[in-house]
Amino acid sequence: MANNNLQKAIDLASKAAQEDKNQNYEEALRLYQAAVQYFLHVVKYEAQGDKAKQSIRAKCAEYLDRAEKLKEYLKKKEKAPPA
């Protein structure tokens, strides 16, 4: 079972959360996106039990939600005229 994609996804997701906590939002956004891409690959191409798929999809939804918020925040920040 090529679990390396799953492991990669998990690594990326935990790095994303770390960067998020450190307020490196650009990096966190990039890592969340990469993590979801790997998770999606695993769900689509690597046979997992339905239960595992459901929980991976739920994780993706969470990360995507967070990534969208970061993206909004970064866009707003960019627009904000330099103080």
Binding site: Q33, L40, R57, C60, A61, L64
Partner: peptide
């Protein structure tokens, strides 16, 4: 309360991912 757990579909994930990537 809207059950958050209604799991998202692969297509929906893919769509959101694309939306994110597009600047």
């Amino acid at each position: 309360s809207s059950s958050k757990q209604a799991t998202i579909s692969d297509d929906e994930i893919e769509r959101q991912l694309r939306a994110l990537g597009v600047d």
